[in-house]
Nucleic acid binder design. Structure first.
Lengths: 132, 132
DNA sequence: CATACGTATCGGTATATCTCGATTTGACTT
DNA sequence: AAGTCAAATCGAGATATACCGATACGTATG
């Protein structure tokens, strides 16, 4: 809705014969393409970390459950209906990715969403799915 | 910025002794927790589809490359510096997930970002990484 | 200190995903 | 029709993730 993805379609720089926009040189790319314009590795790494953390049904269920407020590990155990060690390992990954924060109170550990940006991520992803 | 994650922290419903907010009942959860308040499976499925598609370094690189406009499959081949079949399979997944659209022109296939929401997803995810 | 409980970590196995050569398909050219 | 090229699909081996029982750790309580 913001900027049109199809905007920068006039490519082909300076082809030998300046007639058609493309489809001329018989070959699409002659091998030496752009300097691979990769984004900063740091950025990609950060994105990967978040996406990998959320690319799992159980971890996604955890995040959804935490929308309504913090929960302790054992409560999340019943939400996921999975053995304790399984749940713990998923929570570890969410924590490592910075999606959730923890708070210890006695022998319990409470989990909560670290940043509302995570929730926006969910909503955007859900919207993408409906779109087509 | 919408709803605050730490808002609904007053839980514990009606404990026998209404003194402390938690940490009382000696047991955290007695087994029968909430009705597992799972979100609609359709929503989770949509989110999963998007996150899985983006949870890969090469596919992420493709999306970044397409920010500047559409590219054909062979150009993306040089961007990823990977064999043709590898690139094709990644493009297939991005297409299946609805992240990219395709346009055929002669024997070439051009790929472009399907929805700007995908780009917002990247930016949000990148921001999450910096945050902590 | 011994016990109980919540949680984290450590294996090994099962499952899913990635990779890439080989082959097929479709579109153009001669 | 034969040849060429871009792209898609297939199949098998490599790699990564998920799963979960067993065990270790930390914090209460008796």
């Amino acid at each position: 809705m913001a900027d049109d993805p199809n905007a920068a379609t006039e490519r082909d720089s300076e082809s030998a014969s300046g007639t058609l926009r493309r489809m001329e040189p018989d070959r699409c790319c002659d091998g030496h393409f752009p300097e691979t314009r990769r984004p900063d590795d740091d950025v990609v790494e950060a994105e990967l970390s978040a996406f990998k953390a959320l690319a799992n049904e159980k971890r996604l269920a955890v995040v959804h459950a935490l929308r309504q407020g913090e929960l302790c590990a054992c409560e999340l155990e019943t939400v996921l209906d999975a053995p304790q060690s399984t749940v713990a390992s998923h929570l570890r990954k969410l924590k490592d990715a910075g999606i959730v924060h923890t708070r210890k109170e006695g022998k319990w550990t409470y989990y909560r969403i670290a940043d509302t940006a995570s929730l926006q991520l969910l909503d955007l992803a859900a919207a993408l799915g409906d779109a087509e």
